[in-house]
Simulated scan of single mutants.
Amino acid sequence: MNNSLEQAQQISASIDITGRKMEFDFEPGDIPRYWYGNNAFKSTFMNALSCLFPEGERMFMDAVRDNQQCVTDPQLLQQIKGFIKQEAIHGHEHAQYNDFLKRWQYPIDKIMNFEKKEKVWLKKWLSPARRLAMTCALEHFTAIMAHQVLTNPDFTEGMHPQFKEMWRWHAIEETEHKAVAYDVYQQAVGSYWLRIYTMLVVTVMFCFRTSLFQAIFLWKDGQLFNPKVWWHGVKFYFLKPGLVRNIWSDYLDYFRRDFHPWMHDNRELLQQWEAEGQKYKAV
Score class of each variant (00 low, 15 high):
residue 57 E to Y: 05
residue 139 E to Y: 06
residue 115 E to P: 00
residue 126 L to R: 11
residue 47 N to G: 02
residue 109 D to A: 13
residue 63 A to V: 09
residue 135 T to N: 06
residue 96 Q to P: 00
residue 96 Q to R: 15
residue 78 Q to R: 15
residue 89 I to R: 10
residue 125 W to F: 15
residue 20 R to E: 15
residue 146 A to D: 10
residue 106 Y to H: 09
residue 97 Y to S: 03
residue 103 R to P: 03
residue 131 R to F: 02
residue 76 L to K: 10
residue 75 Q to F: 04
residue 143 A to W: 04
residue 74 P to Q: 12
residue 21 K to V: 14
residue 108 I to W: 10
residue 105 Q to E: 11
residue 91 G to K: 06
residue 110 K to T: 10
residue 86 Q to A: 05
residue 102 K to N: 01
residue 97 Y to G: 03
residue 56 G to S: 03
residue 64 V to K: 07
residue 66 D to M: 11
residue 98 N to G: 01
residue 66 D to Y: 07
residue 52 L to W: 03
residue 130 R to P: 00
residue 42 K to E: 07
residue 99 D to W: 02
residue 93 E to K: 03
residue 112 M to D: 12
residue 68 Q to S: 13
residue 112 M to P: 01
residue 111 I to R: 08
residue 119 K to C: 12
residue 56 G to N: 01
residue 50 S to G: 09
residue 84 I to M: 07
residue 77 L to Y: 04
residue 165 E to G: 15
residue 87 E to P: 04
residue 92 H to V: 10
residue 34 Y to S: 07
residue 84 I to E: 11
residue 28 P to Y: 08
residue 48 A to T: 03
residue 92 H to M: 11
residue 139 E to H: 04
residue 35 W to P: 01
residue 63 A to H: 05
residue 150 L to T: 12
residue 81 K to C: 00
residue 128 P to S: 10
residue 97 Y to I: 02
residue 128 P to N: 10
residue 77 L to E: 11
residue 45 F to K: 04
residue 94 H to S: 02
residue 36 Y to R: 02
residue 110 K to I: 03
residue 45 F to Q: 03
residue 49 L to Q: 10
residue 62 D to A: 15
residue 21 K to R: 15
residue 124 K to E: 09
residue 56 G to C: 04
residue 54 P to G: 02
residue 120 V to D: 13
residue 68 Q to T: 13
residue 140 H to D: 09
residue 125 W to Q: 07
